[in-house]
Design a protein around this nucleic acid. Structure first.
Lengths: 340, 340
DNA sequence: TTGTAAGCGTTATCAT
DNA sequence: ATGATAACGCTTACAA
């Protein structure tokens, strides 16, 4: 349990000199510097982070608010966490995880009100999100991944689901499809006002109307089994549909199985496209024509925006809306001729 | 930026009285208590966590050392993280994430040597793991998920891959299979001495010998594409094989595709079993007969063991080896008759 | 070039 | 029942 005083004693100097060797905030005679450094190396001394945080008013830690484990994290959410942690580590920042929602109110409160972190990254924000309101009141810098209905004045990164889904519909319309379905996220998320789900629906509806198509939209749980059930029902209830746009990557494997079971060959008999991270898109058979959300880039950017906000709280908050290109793979093709 | 002194001033009492209202460590007159509590509620005051940590010598934070994002986390790793975070939150503990390996040495050092946490949970330990050595030297309580070659004297939770794989082999042998393959984790992991991969292989080899079967073992990357390639090669190179045991849940979807492509119907023509979390097992078609690693339970238990270790560092470290039952689903059946 | 001392916000040990 | 005060380990004016 070595402290800076201990090091100072062993090196025969005062505590401040040791501190200055550590921080480099004032010149120290080379001779003394070396002697002190030797003691530091020998004892493996590291400054106590709590003491430093108390003194400096900075913790060098970011809070990352994640959805509770109840709703199993999707691959994309996981990738966000990984990207944020990596980017933070590159900036010598640690990441404190806080599950929010469910019965984890206390965790959120601790992180936000206890000055445990210098700033917060909020994942999975809803259009109307009380956590954002609380953060705004707390004067703690924060960045959201996803954005609320009124994002002005807050820092955020988001993928433009509305545009992305609309372009998927356009792509299908160009291929001659007239009856298109949207496989959205879960009904709970849509009901909760979850941004991507709501905006996907808005983009879908507008694009369908704009192109004079007929559309049907369905909600679907975030897992393969739900995807399978969902597409089964869809094929039974709306047999005129020849293509699906989906924003539910976790359901993809099950959707594939339902198509299989119906004897539909993709893309000859049926087209599938949507928004998905690269990995699930490439794992689809045939590989999914899709807009790839640049998760890694977004996580990195979220950390950058937050650092900026911490450094200059008075500056206007930055934001970034991502509109990645649709990667043409092999899951979309011309509309099949069908007896209608 | 309210402090305890501020609250004391507003309530017309001393700082200590406010502190005692908060901690309940000594009786406070009901009347004063109420007045103080009113001020606290009104201002939304929370004690500064750094100051408290400095004073108490405890941070109420656990470190969770995860593999770097480079090797994309598998679903099971993600589930461990989620389980640990949940269990910690239930105990009013926060979780500090630290990616280790790769070029993130500094993060590990900060967490371990900077007294930023009360204890550490280490994921993905190898049979010979220098992070364990460093932790042992640091006198910081820690628990590993997975165990080293010499786990005595350390606290850990682990699944008994050796036994689990052996029992899978037994199950196949009982069904009449004579030629069985093990689809292991990646070659890199096996080479790095990653526990589950090494122990799976040991269990496989022993069981194969014990039952007088012939076995072939192959390494496979942790993704569907690798699984597909791996099983393709296996079927081509060892056509006598009628069943697979796998510990690579991430490769499962690809393995399934390769079997499909070869025109093999599971379980009629070919059996598949192994060790996997519940979700990927149930998402396999047909549902996978497998030993389900009790990830949630293990994460919870890891936190419990760590709390115990923090509370009583002198007590002998606890551990727990999980040997879950094999859930019979639909992916295994009698060995097919084949011209051999 | 280096040392002294104040203070960050808390809690616990003394007094009163 | 409550208040004053020291101490946790660190950084940074201010002195020397």
């Amino acid at each position: 349990m070595s402290t800076i005083g201990e090091i100072a004693r062993r090196a025969g100097v005062s505590r401040s000199t040791v501190s200055y060797v550590l921080s480099g905030n004032r010149p120290v005679a080379e001779e003394t510097r070396r002697r002190i450094q030797a003691v530091i190396d020998e004892t493996g001394y590291r400054p106590n982070a709590s003491a430093r945080a108390l003194r400096e008013g900075r913790t060098h830690t970011l809070g990352l608010v994640i959805p509770p484990a109840g709703d199993r994290l999707t691959g994309m959410q996981l990738d966000f966490v990984a990207a944020v942690v990596e980017a933070a580590a590159r900036a010598d920042l640690d990441v404190l995880l806080s599950p929010s929602g469910g019965d984890h109110e206390r965790s959120f409160t601790r992180v936000v009100d206890g000055r445990r972190v210098d700033g917060v990254i909020l994942m999975e924000v809803r259009l109307d999100d009380d956590r954002v309101t609380r953060l705004q009141r707390s004067d703690l810098p924060f960045v959201t991944i996803g954005r609320t209905a009124q994002p002005d004045g807050t820092a955020w990164v988001d993928a433009d689901y509305e545009n992305l889904v609309a372009r998927c519909v356009d792509h299908l319309a160009d291929l001659g499809h007239r009856h298109v379905a949207l496989v959205n996220r879960s009904a709970e998320r849509v009901a909760a006002g979850y941004g991507p789900a709501r905006r996907a629906l808005a983009g879908f509806t507008a694009a369908i109307a704009g192109r004079g198509l007929t559309g049907v939209d369905v909600c679907c749980g975030d897992d393969p089994a739900a995807g399978e059930a969902c597409v089964e029902q869809l094929l039974a209830g709306a047999p005129e549909v020849t293509a699906i746009v989906t924003v539910n990557e976790a359901a993809l494997p099950g959707m594939r199985r339902a198509l299989d079971a119906a004897g539909l060959v993709v893309p000859r008999d049926f087209s599938v496209t949507g928004v998905a991270a690269r990995q699930p898109a490439e794992d689809f058979r045939p590989p999914l024509t899709s807009a790839g959300v640049p998760v890694e880039e977004m996580g990195t950017q979220a950390v950058a925006l937050l650092r900026e906000r911490i450094a200059r709280p008075a500056a206007p908050p930055g934001h970034r809306l991502y509109r990645p290109p649709i990667s043409l793979r092999s899951s979309t093709g011309p509309a099949p001729r069908r007896v209608s």
